[in-house]
Design a protein around this nucleic acid. Structure first.
Lengths: 348, 348
DNA sequence: TGTGCAAATTTGATCGTTCAAATTCCTGCC
DNA sequence: GGCAGGAATTTGAACGATCAAATTTGCACA
């Protein structure tokens, strides 16, 4: 009674062989309907479930995805990973895949973890977050023929159309384009941008979204736009400082009448510093933004998760050269603008 | 070259048998030092690592902990689970344990997931978060003799000293006692409390922390304290409403001059509604609190994680009746008060 | 009725490891 | 030198599943 039933027990009860039971589970098409029913009944009766480790040993597949969980560097946007993890786990489970976590102190350590998990046959695919240009992790994974997909573009030349690896990303350009356009529709004309220093793949992309929307609107020239964009490290305090600079203006540069930001952290700082005098739009739609009624650009993490799984389990099977070339090797999903009116906040 | 080395390859290179290699790995004490060295060298040379699935199949242990990842209900405190996950994964890895995620829509579904993971021999222990009194999940786990530890007390009578299962929790009483005491030391006398409706194990515990500190201070009687505590659902808006009520006072009830809250969500609402006029202290030290300079009570999630692992791998092995009775079956860790001065916020 | 051939099912081997039992090695002592 | 007895090591079997090949079944057709 204590022992769990094995495939052999099911076979005995159903009056068939082990292999037939295995076939019912793995390729039901090749077994005759009446035997299949008999086996299914026996499985239900005994409450049998295949022993995953035995299956993994034999098939040399773990059906497990490894993903690194960050040390929660920036608290505010940390929840993006959290929501992504949830979406990924949920959708993976629906396909019989498991999600295993690991931590790493730096990229080199992460590569050691890759090796450890691969050697132990613990996972057979990885999902990478926050990749950067020339990332040693993707290079290692490619060199070692590991199956993986990144959440984030490679940001190299031509990577969009001829990527060296599979990726899913959110179209930050589109997000900031939408945000800027929405402010323009509200009659704002001098819309500033607060983002990160170049070069930053994500950051530059978002800045271009703002820039292109402003140019399309036709009010300002390229030269007039340049002083409206501020590059600063991420964080609430830098966001506040940047906004004060934009509001103050300079000789020959008028103050801005709205601001879009590359992150909710920056936007929060800007919101506080602006004292609610001008509209501010952030990025990521974090809990902070939700709580304070800050407008923000929401990343559709469900779509990102399903895109990742498609690339992992679909024709490409997590490798850039495996699938047919007709099948796109990436997914670029569109974020959604969430407009809110800020809650009243206490004065200094 | 493609194939990973097996224990057999190591044995051949070292000139010993499979089992000796296995012994070097699992019980180094029983193998002679010089053979041990030879084997260790061969392992390093080949880069051998045991195939975890094969090992699990044979030993019937998975060395994997299962934990559910929540659907991110309340965004603000969601990051607590996130930080806990990170701490748990990190410390588990140090002990050769893996962490596997799963999702569930409700407690019954979660029980189905338990069964699935157990039957597949995927995990051999569970970590439960946010348990409640009479939780069907803990009952199922006990009835099915599963190894598990909860993050959160059972909240039943006598569970503290004679628990039916192993648990780790943060001492919310102590956290609110500290917060209240800190405000008393600043000269505040009429300190209000905003929390959740009774019965709520966590909530009632935190309220008692505030209550006991107030009583110890001696300024107010029990009857005078009652109107200073407000019970309301969690959230930013309810927090604001509660604070307005406390600030307005009533016939015979003077306004408060400070407030402690059961969560950062409530505290954030209170902070906004108070317009910075009185000090507010929250609970969880979430990113929002950090960003806005809101004082808060921080849960030491590293300690919680290590406590969970101790109970899981120590003498008790995740079961209430396994270890010696001298060994405590729970850990109650003390939170840390983080005092900040709020950043200036924009006016309505 | 027998034959051919595909479909359905069964059998034997195997994945990489550890357990249990058997064997060999070594050391001390008479 | 022989022998006892423990330490060190090796051997065969097993964990529970799937793969590959062998076998049996079922059906159409001559």
């Amino acid at each position: 009674m204590g022992a769990l039933p094995t495939i052999h027990d099911v076979a005995r009860v159903a009056g068939v062989s082990r292999q037939t039971v295995s076939n019912v589970l793995n390729s039901p098409g090749i077994v005759r309907p009446d035997t299949r029913d008999r086996v299914t009944t026996a499985i239900a009766e005994l409450g049998y479930r295949p022993h995953e480790s035995a299956r993994r040993l034999r098939t040399r597949k773990s059906s497990t995805i490894g993903i690194r969980i960050d040390p929660m560097t920036d608290g505010i946007s940390g929840s993006v990973l959290d929501r992504f993890l949830h979406a990924l786990t949920e959708q993976a489970a629906a396909q019989g895949l498991r999600v295993m976590l690991f931590t790493a102190t730096d990229p080199d350590d992460e590569i050691r973890q890759f090796a450890r998990l691969r050697d132990g046959a613990d996972v057979d695919a990885f999902v990478l977050t926050s990749t950067f240009h020339g990332d040693p992790r993707t290079e290692w994974l490619i060199a070692n023929d590991q199956s993986f997909v990144t959440f984030g573009r490679p940001w190299g030349i031509d990577d969009m159309n001829d990527p060296t690896h599979l990726w899913v990303d959110v179209d930050g350009w589109w997000g900031l384009h939408e945000a800027t356009t929405a402010l323009l529709a509200q009659g704002r004309r001098r819309i500033g941008y607060i983002g990160w220093p170049s070069p930053s793949g994500t950051g530059d992309d978002r800045r271009r979204g703002w820039h292109d929307a402003m140019v399309a609107a036709g009010g300002l020239t390229d030269a007039q736009l340049t002083p409206l964009a501020i590059a600063t490290p991420d964080g609430v305090t830098p966001g506040g400082a940047a906004l004060r600079a934009l509001l103050a203006g300079r000789p020959g540069v008028d103050p801005v009448d709205a601001v879009v930001c590359a992150s909710d952290s920056l936007a929060l700082g800007a919101l506080i510093a602006s004292a609610g005098s001008i509209p501010v739009i952030g990025y990521d739609n974090t809990p902070v933004a939700q709580a304070l009624g800050l407008s923000s650009v929401e990343q559709p993490l469900d779509e990102v998760a399903s895109g990742v799984l498609e690339l992992l389990t679909g024709a490409h099977r997590g490798r850039p050269d495996a699938g047919p070339t007709t099948d796109p090797r990436h997914r670029l999903v569109r974020p959604r603008l969430v407009l809110r009116s800020p809650a009243p906040l206490p004065a200094p």
